[in-house]
Design a protein around this nucleic acid. Structure first.
Lengths: 329, 329
DNA sequence: TTTTAGCACTTTTTGTTGACAAGTGCTAAG
DNA sequence: CTTAGCACTTGTCAACAAAAAGTGCTAAAA
């Protein structure tokens, strides 16, 4: 357990370093604490032994270590109320009744990226709670048609299919069957029901039943709708720890460009706001990811804010809290 | 007009510089041309006076100028057949019958970005040639419903609308009217027809006609579907002219992040493959954009490849040609 | 008239050196 | 337990020197 003074010193160093990314020396801290720099040096040495601080070279000031940031976030950080100016900017988005949920999220993350200079990510997907509401078929020409699927939560997806030698009549019949028999089924169980409830029936009534069944089967197994949206990539370049290190940037950008990102961030299933510092995340050892999950109207997803390890934790967390509240309400 | 030898020297310098981005000296060229370096120096001096070559400093080798690249592309570049290996990789995408057009384009541009190390962009939009085929309405709950619009070219769009105090009956009536009366209308004329052909009728028959009309009116005026897709952003960092200059990267990435890009690239209406070198494009004076438009099945769009000015012009052009051919077939 | 050998000159790159600033750890005294 | 003082370390910056690459120009050769 750290002493009061050690906590105070660690907190000061972290917060100072977040404001200005240069190592913090004992003198600066001693002024604030009204004690000599030698005293502070002793404490700093102790904090370094505890792996909470680091030096960039033998005679440099101290910099928070990864565990230092962790300790700060877990024990020292004070939750601020959200900055009034920040809140105003976000409210403009939330108050806009015209926007669909996913647009609200995207737009507000765009705002957050703009005002914080961090990169933001939204990973959305249609949850398993969606039930099949209705399907529609619109013929386009002799062979191709559009199948439209609507869920009870208002999610819509469509697919182009090609069917030769199947009459419109028979397609309509099949669509009618599906709407009557398996409407209300969870979306990821539809293909199963299709096989055991629809296939046997159309097998009798419909000529090209095999082809028809296959087409619909694929429409539902392809129902995924994973959306990845990254905003403010170039903000990463504003951060001094990256703007001098092209290799770091390359790595981060590669991660942001590849859909693996999705798996990586979503690894755990916690619904709260969580902070992943450095090696705790799968993006890069020099970034921090702050993320939370949300769920609303059958859409669920993850929103994440990515910045340097010295990101403004309190500010970002309070913003995410505010967003989460507003989304789920 | 340049002499044969001047053409030869310029071509050699451009191609050498494309392979290896270091200024080219007279000695290297003299070896290839079997003449003395002094002779080459004289010619180089002349080419510099003509603004086709530049020096990075008084005693450096020569580098192609912007007009030098332009001259190379217009007069010296030989069209190669596409590399067999490159072609194979693209064919895998094109041969996949499962994929929808937009997926084919996205995937093949992903491949091109991978193998060339350039950034690729696709700007898609639904063309004005689309005619309204059919609209459908699926009610979700008491107040909200989904309106689905399908065009004759198979383009689908949907929108969530909220209507209070309007009965399902009346909505269905209106939808029926629209499908009967203005199906077949070019998509961007629908809202006009809605006003002059539908509004007067529902004004008589439907109670909440104002609200209902407004809802549908918005659905059609919002019908835009502009899609921007950037692939391989981080490839930009592989190019030596950028990897040492953060400000350049910032500028390029900002352009890639903002939808203005769309207007900028699409500025002219040429359907051929066009090359925009340096200041000829609106991205950055240090990049070249090679782009072409395509049109297929009522979708139209632009595909563009963005790289340094010393990009492999012949390779990229042949790839784009091949793509264009395959898309439009 | 064109080509080329030769040479003086420029600029970039690389390495060295020295001075200075910032900050540490340790010791010994308060 | 705190602190003043001091020796020591490291990074940064500027100045300088030497080497490398390449040019332009002149005068001779073809």
């Amino acid at each position: 357990m750290l002493t009061d003074r050690q906590n105070k010193i660690l907190k000061l160093i972290v917060e100072r370093y977040i404001k200005d990314p240069t190592p913090v020396g004992s003198k600066a801290i001693s002024k604030i604490l009204n004690c000599s720099s030698a005293t502070v040096r002793n404490e700093m040495g102790e904090l370094e032994r505890l792996n909470l601080l680091e030096k960039t070279h033998t005679s440099s000031g101290r910099v928070p270590s990864e565990t230092g940031y962790r300790y700060y976030v877990d024990n020292l950080m004070e939750m601020k109320k959200m900055n009034a100016e920040d809140m105003l900017k976000l409210q403009i988005v939330f108050k806009n009744q015209q926007l669909a949920l996913s647009d609200v999220i995207t737009k507000s993350l765009q705002v957050i990226s703009d005002i914080t200079n961090y990169t933001t990510v939204v990973l959305g997907s249609t949850s398993h709670e969606n039930l099949l509401k209705q399907i529609e078929v619109v013929p386009i020409d002799d062979v191709s048609m559009i199948v439209i699927i609507v869920t009870d939560k208002g999610h819509v997806e469509h697919k182009n299919i090609k069917l030769e030698d199947v009459s419109l009549e028979e397609i309509k019949k099949t669509v009618g069957l599906i709407n009557n028999l398996i409407s209300g089924t969870p979306i990821d169980e539809v293909s199963h029901k299709l096989e055991f409830e629809i296939k046997p029936i159309i097998g009798k009534y419909v000529k090209q039943h095999e082809q028809l069944y296959n087409a619909f089967y694929h429409v539902f197994t392809d129902f995924t709708n994973k959306e990845v949206n990254v905003m403010g990539r170039s903000k990463m370049l504003e951060q001094p720890e990256f703007s001098t290190n092209i290799d770091k940037i390359k790595n981060v950008f590669n991660k942001l460009d590849s859909p693996e990102l999705l798996n990586n961030i979503t690894e755990d299933d916690d619904n709260n706001i969580k902070v992943y510092i450095g090696n705790e995340n799968n993006i890069d050892s020099d970034v921090t990811v702050i993320k939370t999950k949300f769920k609303k109207n059958g859409e669920e997803g993850t929103i994440a804010i990515i910045g340097p390890k010295r990101m403004e934790y309190d500010r970002v967390v309070s913003m995410l809290e505010y967003m989460k509240e507003n989304i789920e309400r």
